[in-house]
Amino acid sequence: MTGLIFRRLAIGLVTMWAVSLLVFASTEILPGDVAESILGKEAPDDVIAAMRERLGLNEPAHVRYWDWLSGLFVGDLGVSLGSGREISELIDDRLWNTVRLASVTAIIAVPLAVILGLISAMRAGTVMDRSISIGTLCMISLPEFFVAALLVYVFAVQLRWLPALPIVRPDQSLWSSLTSIVLPVMTLTFAVLAHMARMTRNAVINVLSSAYVEMALLKGVPNWRIILFHAFPNALSPIINVIALNLAYLVAGVVIVETAFGYPGLARLMVDAVGTRDVPLVQACGMIFCATYVLLNLLADVLSILSNPRLRTQK
């Protein structure tokens, strides 16, 4: 089993390296020039040239790639070209904001999705199953910015229960920081619910047609117990994998929601950095997102292995 995990870990590292190449290459081909975007279009050519020299932009690409990569290994993300501050410092707050939004969403969305999926599986083909299916599909079909606007209109404008824009301050109490992110959390929950719920439903239904479920039925085991103790543990592997993908999305794919609510998260930092041609910052964000995907998928693999006695008890 440990062998299996190490292999996955190694594959993860290779993926990270491949992504680092991609991230670097794609920032290379971004149109525009950093020095020019810092100094403005009217800056004289010789000032821009001096700036380029100072920023090390005249070095050949492979040298810059190597400098950057070796920096990453020792935790040095470099200096932001835009503000001149350490990137790790810039990212610190933003990352924490993103993680908070993602984890609150996950704590609500994952159990909710699994429960909805289990109910659908138990009542497959009934009105209940179809309503859950249609409901979650509607939620995922609506664009996130539309859902966000709708929620703001209902809860902030009409009902005036919640703030339209989340206020994020360091001195905030836990309660107010939680209420301030209710709307973004709801929007994100809507976005990730359908995928996880449907996978849970289908994985469990798949298992429900197996001989050991019929056996449990013929032992007089009640339905809810069959679903929870006989079917669900055997359906875990695909469910865990879908959950991992959705969690990764919550960290890396939330730019629209962050923008819609003016939420100071990591994804928005990255988009802003693209706008200012702040290449080191874009690269750092890219690598963090990639690491999130790799780590969550690795975690999913490990959990899948642990959920399967055949793999777990391998000699």
Partner: peptide
């Protein structure tokens, strides 16, 4: 009552034990 009957009064042995045992229990 039917559930009470199954397993207790009437018990079932299937063709394939390999398929009829839950692999994760």
């Amino acid at each position: 009552s039917r559930r009470n009957l199954r397993g207790e009064k009437v018990a079932y042995v299937a063709q394939s034990a390999a398929a009829s045992f839950n692999p994760s229990l």
